[in-house]
């Protein structure tokens, strides 16, 4: 039997700071990504081949996307590093779901159960089962930890607000606090609530998708170990790409929404 844990478990400590398995996998992912980019971009030839071609394809895809959403090339070139970084990081954090060994290789922790083992015969039987299941995985996809996804959602939402203030100035607050008439006032309140709902929907969408995928793979592997899980692995790869894309795309769309003021035409004339 395997155990499904909602929270990431602690693997070891560095100077009193607990390092969870999700954090560890996140670090591994970042290091791998940096290495890949360093190797791929080492030559930097004019005609890209191999790894460089892949990275340049990703970059130009997101440049085109930013241009089509934001409207002009200048702001697209400003936005594309942030958006592409989000995509690459979320993708690397997601793709660990399908890599063998993640969630299965771990450290056995038994010391917590030794003390309780002598209570009764039935109890100790349960404990030995619990001991069997009490394996702390060394790796766990970074997106399957709510802390990471909330942090990423906060980064995305705060950057959106900063860009809103930068482009619209103090007029950005008019979106949320508008006393011209009662309808605008209530629309402002709804806008304010939706800013906070963004954090929740961003973080839980990513966490839910990846965590559910992990649980799905574990259950399918337990039911039928051979061949049948293959399509589910394909599905998980697809889901991790789509979720990374959705995170980046939604951030881009929200940035665009923050850049345009509510009373767009009047504002543009007044400025």
């Amino acid at each position: 039997m395997f155990s499904i844990s909602l929270v990431a478990e602690e693997v070891f400590k560095i100077g009193g700071m607990p390092v969870t398995n999700s954090l560890l996998t996140g670090w591994v992912g970042i290091v791998l990504l940096i290495l890949l980019v360093a190797i791929g971009m080492r030559k930097g030839s004019l005609v890209p081949t191999g790894l460089q071609l892949i990275f340049e394809a990703i970059y130009s895809f997101f440049l085109n996307l930013c241009e089509s959403v934001l409207g002009d090339k200048k702001s697209a070139e400003k936005a594309v590093p942030f958006i592409t970084t989000i995509f690459l990081f979320v993708f690397v954090a997601n793709i660990f779901t399908v890599i063998p060994g993640v969630g299965t290789i771990g450290i056995k922790k038994t010391e917590a159960h030794v003390a309780e083992a002598a209570v009764s015969a039935e109890q100790s039987l349960e404990d030995s089962e619990a001991k069997e299941a009490n394996l702390t995985p060394l790796f766990r996809p970074a997106s399957a930890d709510l802390n990471m996804t909330i942090a990423l959602a906060l980064v995305s939402v705060i950057v959106t607000q900063i860009i809103g203030f930068k482009t619209l100035g103090i007029g950005y607050l008019k979106k949320f606090f508008n006393f011209t008439n009662p309808i605008n006032f209530f629309v402002g309140i709804l806008e304010l609530i939706s800013e906070f709902a963004k954090i929740i929907s961003f973080s839980f969408r990513l966490f839910g998708n990846i965590f559910a995928g992990e649980v799905l793979l574990a259950v399918i592997l337990m039911l039928v170990p051979y061949f049948v899980p293959l399509p589910f692995y394909g599905l998980e790869i697809f889901v991790s790409i789509i979720q990374a894309f959705v995170f980046a795309m939604l951030t881009l769309v929200f940035i665009k929404l923050a850049m345009t003021s509510h009373d767009g035409e009047e504002h543009a004339v007044a400025r």
């Binding site: 929907s201 839980f204 969408r205 789509i242 894309f245 959705v246 795309m249 769309v253």
Partner: peptide
Amino acid sequence: MILGIAFTEA
């Protein structure tokens, strides 16, 4: 469409 699916799926 993918954006809409993401919102619905949420």
